[in-house]
Design a protein around this nucleic acid. Structure first.
Ligand SMILES: [Mn+2]
Ligand SMILES: [Mn+2]
Ligand SMILES: [Mn+2]
Ligand SMILES: [Mn+2]
Lengths: 217, 217
DNA sequence: AATAATATTTAGACAAATCTAAAAATATGT
DNA sequence: ACATATTTTTAGATTTGTCTAAATATTATT
């Protein structure tokens, strides 16, 4: 498996290619920041290798083997992210770029030892689930903060937007995973929220609220 | 810098290219397990980039920039080896292959944090010196065990042969870096040694003795 | 000094991964 | 349904790193 092949599989997985849903060439090209013609070439190659099903002009879906391979890479990516944060004091907005490189290191022993060192974490610094060695993982029951009604409360468990800008904004406002958020009021005009978090009161826009995942009791 | 370029620089450094000694095309090809014609192509490219001096039919030497780059990669390689041994319980015969991959990860912050986590080690698991962030390092005063006279003693500080076979042999015979070795006797016929190490007495061939570095008091 | 052996370079090919531009298929709108 | 817009594929080119085979330069031997 080349690095490029691994990146295609990961992108297709993130677009939903695991549930026999046909993923369009253009969608993959956009996700990978490449051209559709390049995607077509790679789709043929990966189909040849038995990692995905490719129907000309229709799109691709991952085979069981393709899903397994994608999950192994996602597992590595997320474990490295946890390692960087927990062991090397990286901030959660710094880890993605480095993990993009580390996820391609080929050593089963290495990633299993990292997993053990971290005591088998279930979620990465952004709240995304970490597949086990055998590829199992459960998505946490969660919803967007923006979907909660007035007076509801939830624990912050993840972010939808993982951009550095957004993550730094959250840091600046001391909003972190694990924090409990109460919705005090919602503004009809722009859906902005008046919330209480860790004793403080805060006003946040709908754009913020619709990029924060919470778990309700 | 591509991975391939980095590997060429490292190989040339290991062949002595830092001391304005001309390194032959064939020597590089052998070290890299590639063909001389490939080396010529790469030599032109690296010369173009100012990383080495290339004289047609004569060989190459590293420029100051080339030395600096090579040392940065060697630093990463050796720090990762220490990390694998100290933090993840890898054995010293397992680390090289993985370090060959990890040395190409591009993140200054990452390697500096690994350095700090390990408390700035000066030597890797095979006794080789680790360059600092600024590229300084001193080779430890050492000599081959085979060069010591009868009755001399020394502390084991490194290995010349870093092959898995040799390292595993040393493990099996409980010979480790840091051990003190006394030369009890030397056999004229085959230069094999009768040694005392950590209380035990052992008979070792000249081939073993000429791959073990010791530091004398 | 001429010849033979060795080392190095050049020329041309190939595989991987990408791109642009043109062609073909599919989807959309009236 | 048919013209138009969009999506996807194909054809051909490019870059990087490699290879083989032939040509050229250097070194060693007589
Ligand atoms: Mn990430
Ligand atoms: Mn993440
Ligand atoms: Mn090594
Ligand atoms: Mn080493």
């Amino acid at each position: 498996m080349t690095r490029s092949e691994e990146n295609y599989l990961k992108a297709i997985f993130h677009l939903g290619g695991q549930n026999s849903k046909l993923i369009a060439t253009n969608a993959i090209a956009e996700q990978m920041e490449t051209k559709p013609s390049s995607v077509t070439d790679m789709a043929k190659k990966l189909a040849e290798k038995g990692l995905l099903h490719y129907k000309r002009y229709q799109g691709v879906t991952l085979t069981p083997m393709g899903v397994k391979t994608a999950l192994a890479i996602i597992r590595k990516h997320r474990l490295w992210e946890v390692f960087l944060v927990k062991k090397l004091d990286f901030t959660w907005d710094e880890v993605h770029e480095v993990a993009e490189q580390l996820e391609h290191i080929k050593s089963e022993k290495l990633i299993d030892k990292i997993d053990a060192l971290l005591e088998y974490p279930k979620f990465d610094p952004h709240g995304d689930p970490i597949p086990t060695k055998t590829g199992e993982f459960q998505e946490r029951a969660k919803q967007l903060l923006s979907e909660l009604p007035i007076a509801a409360q939830g624990v912050c468990v993840g972010v939808k937007d993982t951009s550095s800008t957004f993550l730094k904004f959250l840091d600046k406002n001391s909003i972190a995973l694990g924090n409990t958020i109460h919705i005090l009021d919602k503004e009809d005009f722009d859906n902005s929220l008046h919330i209480q978090i860790e004793g403080r009161e805060l006003q946040i826009s709908n754009q913020i609220a619709s990029n924060l995942y919470v778990k309700t009791a």
